[in-house]
Design a protein around this nucleic acid. Structure first.
Lengths: 346, 346
DNA sequence: TAGAGCCTGGACAACGTTGTCACGGGCGGG
DNA sequence: CCCGCCCGTGACAACGTTGTCCAGGCTCTA
């Protein structure tokens, strides 16, 4: 009786038909409906037809939440990145999604906005949903809060920046080598006074790129003047000031290495207003870099490959791989377009 | 040999402690743990402390899947968009996320890749997870498959393009008005032979923009030659051919209106190789449009506002709003940068 | 034709949580 | 001093699904 009363005659919102309702309507047992829905064997064609009709008539859709509770695996994963709106993360995110899709897994997405607290909050919320795995672009530098989760079986892979104070899989670009190659490229074109503008060194990628700059300069036996490096500037106005400063003064730089794509673009703006040519190489490729005059020479990392590699790694873990956590470094590629090949002026 | 042995018991949730375990360890009842975890009143300070200690010691984290099953609301929503890697959708996605976050809701993300079947598959998978709501950027033009879901209470809002064959909330840009204004701008600068290159007219936005072009031309009393409009071209190679075609011939256009940002960028490339100046206005803004020479004049839509508006609408529905489904059109903005103000040549 | 084996279908418990309700003890007021 | 009330606590059912196991009915063979 109570079952009949719960029939979805009522168009009450939020009251969806369940397998029980379908079973009642089809005149079969609950488990038989489950079998039909999951394509399990052991149901006659006639019974199956009756069940299908009932499903159709009621607009039944299996409740995967309940399924998950019973089965253990949720077939979902989380991606915590820095900012969905940043064009660098679009392709990365998309690549992770494609791998997830290939494994029949849905993807939760969230932005940390470069705030460690928010990263943690997000990651733990995802764990509470019992995602099978996490791909994290770290904002913070201490990830011990994830220890119980990882121990409990949440496959976790860090991308773009290493994990802090825990042992986990990490997929990085070769930031040091890329920056080194980019700066060496400028040196090879005759520059000696080369500036570096980058993000706060507490961000691992920024620190590594700075290190690459220093290595290249050292390789060439060029001492670096303090006024040539500018760290921790990220908003356009301060980047502009930093660039203008190193371009004036007694020993102005003849070339600039920009530590990430946002910096690069601002520097392009500054240089466009200048009368003399200044060489520029930027870390990270960006759309339209080839359309500018001159085209912008960049050290490109493959965001999609980063994402794909991380996701592959994650699913290998979920499939039971027990190899020790690994640090994978992907190579970068120097793309010459003109701005990095300008000779020193003055 | 039994299939049950295939997945070791330890692989289920990875042996996560449950409230029952916490209760046993703290020497209290199950429900008391629940009360502590949810901050419900009616627990003495001493009991609460014991429970907290047990939680800490075991590394317990509430299973929100089970919670959801019991409570009905999942505090999660889905966003189905065309391509996460497309820079236009980054800010939109981010805006939706911010609103979701403000409502304590997690966001599932998925790309349809402009494939109606994949859109449906994704949307229904999300419904099976019992998301509270959906924001969809439609790829297909028939969304009747969502009818049972909407009736069951899944708040659904369509963005950027209208829903097909069902009555639902829609948030759009004023594609017709924007294109009309953009073309009128060209006409105001003396152009009469104006070309239009856009996507397939089966895509609503493309059709509306074409209509805007025709309206503007009609307003000015300019008959449109068939060779001036090129529809359904989207890959760079064909856009290039289309542009070159309308720029040669007996009656070459002196200006081009580009139907979306990908077309615009390709046209910029084509025009860069040309000796004579050709005016250009594009639909959709893009980064660096101001850095090109000349800067590219565009009709800009506010992607973030689109996303925010849609998400707001969705949560208003979830809060019980019962107003009839509505169609919201957001205004566009003409940004002049140079390319649209070139006078007709020849 | 009886027994064995197979196939179909259903009853029931379990997943981890929350809502309901009942119980016992301490306390204040009559 | 006793009654009733409130407060802290816990037992139990329910959420919707799947895994296990068993009951019948059928076919096949000896």
């Amino acid at each position: 009786m109570p079952e009949t009363a719960r029939r979805p005659e009522s168009h009450r919102y939020g009251n969806r038909p369940t397998m029980k309702d379908v079973a009642a309507r089809a005149g079969v047992g609950l488990k038989t409906v489950s079998r039909v829905v999951n394509g399990e064997p052991g149901v006659t064609a006639d019974t199956e037809r009756r069940v299908q009709e009932a499903i159709e008539a009621l607009g039944f859709r299996r409740n995967d939440s309940a399924r998950v509770l019973r089965k253990g695996r949720t077939a979902s994963m989380g991606l915590v990145l820095e900012d969905l709106a940043d064009p660098f993360y679009g392709p990365l995110s998309r690549a992770v999604e494609e791998v997830a899709r290939a494994h029949g897994t849905l993807l939760f997405n969230g932005s940390s906005a470069e705030d460690p607290e928010r990263e943690q909050e997000l990651a733990l919320a995802l764990c509470a949903r019992r995602v099978d795995g996490l791909v994290i672009i770290p904002a913070g530098d201490d990830h011990r809060y994830l220890e119980p989760e990882i121990r409990a079986g949440v496959a976790t892979v860090f991308v773009d920046r290493p994990a802090g104070r825990i042992d986990a899989d990490v997929v990085l670009s070769d930031n040091h080598g890329g920056a080194r190659a980019g700066v060496a490229h400028l040196i090879a074109h005759g520059h000696r006074r080369i500036g570096f503008i980058g993000d706060m060194p507490r961000i691992h990628t920024a620190a590594e790129r700075l290190r690459g700059y220093r290595t290249a300069m050292e390789d060439a036996g060029i001492p670096v003047a303090p006024s040539w490096t500018s760290l921790g500037v990220t908003d356009p106005e301060r980047v502009r000031r930093a660039a203008e400063e190193m371009l004036s003064g007694p020993e102005p730089v003849t070339a600039i290495f920009a530590g990430n794509n946002r910096v690069t673009i601002t520097v392009v703006r500054v240089l466009a207003e200048l009368s003399r040519p200044v060489a520029l190489v930027g870390f990270d490729d960006f759309e339209l870099a080839d359309l500018l005059r001159p085209g912008v020479t960049v050290v490109a990392q493959d965001a999609a490959l980063l994402g794909r590699t991380a996701a592959d790694r994650l699913f290998r873990r979920l499939d039971g791989s027990l190899v020790a956590p690994e640090r994978i470094e992907l190579p970068t590629r120097l793309i010459t377009r003109g701005s990095g090949e300008l000779p020193p002026a003055g």
